[in-house]
Nucleic acid binder design. Structure first.
Lengths: 188, 188
DNA sequence: CCATTCGTTCAACACTTGTTGACCCACTCA
DNA sequence: TGAGTGGGTCAACAAGTGTTGAACGAATGG
């Protein structure tokens, strides 16, 4: 049912966006391997061949669906840094962009996704490590901060652990804050 | 080259064990989907059909390769509990059984693995929640403790983040301890 | 020493996957 | 109105998957 008052170019952009959305949803839910071009096409009410024509390959579709992992943060104030990190967990429910979930879902079973995540987390770790109060191993502390948040996010968003799903996210943040601060370094 | 002084039954058990080992290694490295029966068979220097005859199906092979997720812990002393949890991260390098890594590798992309992990973590959370000092949300605190350790383990064992790979694991444990205690509850 | 078990292999099936090239037809535009 | 662009579909291929049934051949046991 073609929406009226829409130019051919508009329709094309719309179709392309619809495909990309379906892909993101499926990749986020099932990962790279288990998401099939045919399923994406069906979800977008389109022929599989069209997906190929627009995106070239399944891999290319994946990278377009992912876009970017969160950019590294920079703050010199530890408290502000912690707040910023915690807010990325989701002010309400599922606060991080779907493209990020797509990456996380596939990072344990797809080489390309793993490389991407390793690099992105590495950048975050460096940037946080530099912002932490002086201590013996700022980079290791930063890595532990990041992996802690990673674990909580996985349990919450990807595994849907009941205890986390049912908890208000500001409560989660409140409980997490002292732990993150403890990891970050010497009080003060 | 058949080892002499080995009965037919012995050889059969040896072959079966060799297949299971190859399977565990591949499942742990690449996950359920990307591990093929043919690859397992090749790694065990055996025909693919033999794998089927011994294990029935790829799924069955997987569950046999996994065996059990860590059993829930029970201790009433918080400090001892924390120590026990930290030691599961690996006294030296990679302290947890390969079967556990197999599960973790596939939990984000395989429904059965996800269910298994959810259940196992749920049990751990319950058990830890009951052992925690009285507070408002013992179960939520327990969930955060577990997911924190999960995240660090993933970063360390499955993603091989450089900052974690290069760190002595007792240093990791030392940095983690205060954070876990902060999550566990009120000091005392 | 022969019949038989049984560990093991061979060859094939049925199916799904990513990917491709030919084709159709509604819309644009001159 | 009539040619032509281009969004979209159809049908098929080649490769790889889990899985199966028949067959082989060395060790066994009577």
């Amino acid at each position: 049912m073609p929406t009226p008052h829409q130019s051919r170019a508009d329709r094309r952009r719309a179709t392309e966006a619809r495909i990309l959305d379906s892909a993101r949803g499926l990749f986020a839910a099932k990962g790279f391997e288990r998401t099939t071009i045919r399923a994406v096409a069906a979800a977008a009410s389109v022929d599989p061949a069209l997906v190929m024509q627009y995106f070239g390959s399944k891999r290319e579709l994946f990278t377009q669906a992912v876009q970017a992992f969160p950019a590294p943060l920079t703050t010199t104030d530890t408290d502000a840094l912690v707040d910023q990190l915690l807010s990325s967990l989701g002010p309400k429910l599922g606060g991080l962009p779907e493209g990020t979930l797509v990456m996380m879902r596939s990072m344990l079973t797809d080489q390309a996704a793993a490389d991407h995540v390793r690099a992105a987390l590495g950048r975050q770790i460096d940037s946080i490590g530099a912002a932490l109060p002086p201590s013996e191993d700022p980079e290791l502390r930063a890595a532990l901060v990041i992996t802690t948040l990673l674990g909580v996010t996985i349990g919450h968003q990807l595994l849907s652990l009941a205890s986390l799903r049912d908890a208000p996210s500001d409560r989660i943040a409140a409980l997490l804050r002292p732990a993150i601060k403890a990891l970050a370094g010497p009080p003060g």
